[in-house]
Nucleic acid binder design. Structure first.
Lengths: 353, 353
DNA sequence: ATGAAAGCGCTAACAC
DNA sequence: GTGTTAGCGCTTTCAT
């Protein structure tokens, strides 16, 4: 343990071979005699050498093997949403099998904070993945572009020169809405994802409906109105969390002119609405139907099973990983749009008479 | 965009300075005339140079600026637990302010899978953090040690030569138990975290009680018995998830000789027990009291607020980050054990008469 | 305040 | 099959 950490050169000289040969012994990429190889490996063990230093390898190869994943929000908030987590799980798994690691890069948190995490500016990454890349001001994407780091945007706006992976949420949302319409509902309210970073909360005044900055919110709301429905109310939430759905439900469902159904932009919001309905003494779905989006497994909603539009989260992660792979191979991946499926649960039923 | 990406040397020659001067212009670490500095920066913009290549810098400095975080389980499962997420949030935040990035390294998932993710073997990291490092076989820690990567173990066994950060969960668990005893409960069951990687589920036969592999489970169970309590039953779960708590609740609370209180090793488990109790028509806390551990915010349990032992999750992340900082500075951080606090909610009350 | 030079540890041409 | 050589892009003494 006395001196410096041994290098490949040390191992090579101990094994009495050249460094290039020693390199081959570890990488296996090239012809080498089994005996030589073994000699190198033995020398390595002898010296306590545990394999090539990744830093040297990375510089030489010009690749870090790292994919920076910019989460669309403060980590804590982002990861409270199973949607992010399950997506990330699919992404990390697939990237892992490609030999790539995931560097967590915090996204913009408070509007007050510096807009771009220092890691975006200076961390080593071969490719970046931007989750929830749907805002119109993209300081993060600008920095990445300046650095020349190829980027995959998830759920963002489809733009020239930007690789995107998304889901068919507009049609999915429309399908959920039509499901309610088919059940005879006429008074339907909508609980939406945030319109922008302002984190506003409450029923949206009509003029604000045309000022949606977040692409995903715009698309899902468009899906609702694609059906021809004119919602009785549109309620904006500051984040996709149960408590915000709960607040929305309390506000929307009190009073006699309440809607008979609520469509929500996410399952977490929808489950909050269900809890609020129960709390108000309303039966679900006899008095009020509730539909969500995401297809999450929500055991604590039992015995109810949420009617929801299921999106293939793990597949989405894998699709993004493959886009990353293409980018690394120098190819330009095409936009992928994954299908969604309406899954009818126990929280929607015929409109009350 | 024709040729290679520009390097610092290109910028230097365009600005008619030496590379070392150009380097100073970017790092700011050294004396440089403001005018020269500006000339370099202008040249950089001109050439589309976006700052020093991190790979070159890392090799030169011998540091990657990366902390590998080995999550204690498959990502998906791990991140379904707010405990991991909130800890990670604190960790990433504090490390970020130290200029360090977090590389996500999947931990052992299935016992069938290769025990150690390839990233552990070969990714660049200056320090590693092992979450839930409490198992007796540490293939991951062995590899890290062989590579000479200093490691912080969270919630693991305190051992010679291993830096650990933990919480005082043994006393916390004892305090929760004493709270129940003080309320007059005599028949108390325990719902525990996994004993080992076997993911067994159900009431534990007595002989298995001495075969707890996971340190955290051992400590928390010891906390319960430290009070002198002899639990009516000990129920082992395969993971800290609501559905497993639910299953435990259903099994423990059916029948007339049911316990009047259940102490759980986590809030997710406890909330599952509450749901099961409600489902069985039992009133909480009139018929059965339930206590948890972690101090999570569980909005969907409303109107109940879980009685729980709160642990400072963000602080734990920060404490680990500071241990990492010490390690990087060449110092040996001391073991930190953070305090926990019993917070009485609405789910515990006097034992039924 | 600036420049020259060395070298971090490795891999990949290329020659033998 | 093995060795020689040349960098990858940068930071950091050390001179000037």
């Amino acid at each position: 343990m006395s001196r410096q950490r041994p290098t490949l050169a040390d191992v090579a000289s101990a094994a009495k071979v050249s460094v290039s040969t020693a390199s081959l012994a570890f990488s296996g990429a090239g012809p080498i005699a089994a005996a030589t190889r073994q000699r190198v490996l033995d020398a390595a063990v002898e010296l306590g050498y545990s394999g090539p230093n990744p830093l040297g390898r990375q510089l030489r190869r010009g690749r870090s093997g790292i994919v920076g994943v910019v989460v669309g929000d403060a980590l804590k908030r982002s990861f409270r949403d199973p949607v992010s987590v399950q997506f990330l799980d699919g992404l990390v798994g697939t990237l892992g099998s490609l030999g790539l690691g995931v560097l967590l890069v915090p996204g913009p948190s408070d509007p007050s904070q510096p807009a771009v995490d220092p890691l975006v500016e200076s961390a080593a990454m071969d490719v970046a993945v931007v989750m929830w890349g749907g805002t119109s001001d993209h300081p993060v994407q600008d920095v990445l572009q300046r650095r020349g780091i190829p980027t995959v945007v998830v759920e963002g706006r489809r733009e020239e020169g930007v690789v995107t992976v998304g889901i068919d949420d507009r049609n999915g949302m429309a399908e959920a809405t039509r499901h309610l319409l088919a059940l005879g509902h006429e008074r339907i309210a909508v609980v939406t994802l945030p319109f922008d970073a302002s984190r506003r909360e409450g029923i949206v005044p009509p003029e604000r409906l045309s000022q949606i900055d977040w692409e995903i919110t715009r698309r899902r709301l468009a899906g609702v109105t694609d059906t021809g429905l004119r919602p009785t109310a549109v309620y904006e939430t500051p984040a996709s969390l149960v408590e915000h759905g709960h607040a929305a439900g309390l506000e929307l469902l009190r009073g006699d002119d309440r809607p008979t159904a609520v469509v929500c932009h996410s399952d977490l919001l929808a489950s909050g609405v269900v809890l609020a309905a129960r709390e108000l003494g309303l039966r679900v779905p006899q008095d009020v139907s509730v539909a969500g989006f995401d297809g999450l497994d929500l055991p604590w909603l039992a015995p109810d099973v949420l009617t929801s539009v299921a999106q293939p989260l793990a597949d989405k992660g894998a699709a993004v990983a493959h886009a990353v792979e293409d980018l690394l191979a120098g190819e330009t991946p095409v936009h992928r749009e994954l299908p969604v499926t309406l899954r009818v649960g126990t929280t929607t039923g015929p409109a009350p008479a």
